[in-house]
Simulated assay, not measured.
Amino acid sequence: MTISAPPEAVWRTVLDQVEVVGRPSWYVRTIGCRDARPSGPRPLAAGSVVPGFRVTAADPPGSLALDGVHRFSVYSLTFRLVPDGAGTRLEAHTDATFPGVLGAVYRLLVIDSRLHRVATRSILERVRRRLATSREGYDRRQL
Score class of each variant (00 low, 15 high):
Thr2Arg: 15
Thr2Phe: 06
Ile3Tyr: 00
Ile3Ser: 00
Pro6Phe: 00
Pro7Lys: 00
Pro7His: 01
Val10Ile: 00
Trp11Ser: 01
Trp11Arg: 01
Arg12Leu: 09
Thr13Lys: 02
Val14Gln: 00
Val14Met: 02
Asp16Trp: 07
Asp16Tyr: 03
Asp16Gly: 06
Gln17Ser: 09
Gln17Ala: 08
Gln17Ile: 13
Gln17Trp: 03
Val18Gln: 01
Glu19Tyr: 04
Glu19Asn: 05
Val20Gln: 05
Val21Gly: 03
Gly22Tyr: 06
Gly22Lys: 05
Arg23Pro: 01
Pro24Gly: 10
Ser25Phe: 13
Tyr27Ile: 12
Arg29Asn: 08
Ile31Trp: 03
Gly32Trp: 06
Gly32Val: 02
Cys33Tyr: 03
Cys33Lys: 02
Asp35Pro: 02
Asp35Phe: 01
Asp35Met: 01
Asp35Arg: 00
Ala36Thr: 15
Pro38Asp: 08
Gly40Asn: 08
Pro43Thr: 07
Ala45Arg: 07
Gly47Asn: 13
Val49Met: 14
Pro51Thr: 12
Gly52Met: 07
Gly52Asn: 14
Phe53Asn: 04
Val55Trp: 02
Thr56Trp: 02
Thr56Cys: 11
Ala57Leu: 03
Ala58Asn: 03
Ala58Thr: 00
Ala58Ser: 05
Asp59His: 06
Asp59Ser: 05
Ser63His: 10
Ala65Tyr: 03
Ala65Arg: 11
Leu66Arg: 02
Leu66Met: 06
Asp67Gly: 07
Asp67Cys: 12
Asp67Leu: 02
Asp67Thr: 14
Gly68Val: 10
His70Gly: 12
Val74Ser: 10
Tyr75Pro: 07
Tyr75Ala: 09
Thr78Ile: 12
Thr78Val: 14
Thr78Asn: 15
Phe79Ile: 02
Arg80Val: 12
Arg80Gln: 07
Leu81Ile: 00
Val82Ile: 15
Val82Thr: 12
Pro83Tyr: 04
Pro83Asn: 03
Asp84Val: 09
Ala86Gln: 14
Thr88Ala: 03
Thr88Trp: 01
Arg89Ser: 08
Leu90Cys: 02
His93Lys: 12
Thr94Met: 10
Ala96Ser: 14
Ala96Gly: 05
Thr97Trp: 06
Phe98Tyr: 07
Pro99Ser: 01
Gly100Ala: 10
Val101His: 06
Val101Arg: 11
Leu102Gly: 14
Leu102Glu: 08
Ala104Lys: 11
Ala104Gln: 07
Val105Asp: 09
Arg107Tyr: 08
Val110Leu: 07
Asp112Glu: 11
Asp112Arg: 13
Asp112Phe: 05
Ser113Thr: 13
Arg114Ser: 08
Val118Ala: 15
Ala119Tyr: 05
Ala119Leu: 15
Arg121Pro: 13
Ser122Asn: 10
Ser122Ala: 05
Ser122Ile: 04
Ile123Thr: 13
Leu124Met: 09
Glu125Ala: 12
Val127Met: 01
Arg128Pro: 10
Arg128Thr: 05
Arg130Lys: 09
Leu131Gly: 07
Leu131Asn: 11
Thr133His: 06
Thr133Gly: 09
Thr133Cys: 06
Thr133Phe: 12
Ser134Asp: 08
Arg135Asp: 14
Glu136Ala: 15
Glu136Phe: 14
Glu136Met: 15
Gly137Leu: 12
Arg140Cys: 04
Arg140Gly: 13
Arg141Gly: 06
Arg141Pro: 13
Gln142Leu: 04
Gln142Asp: 15
Gln142Met: 13
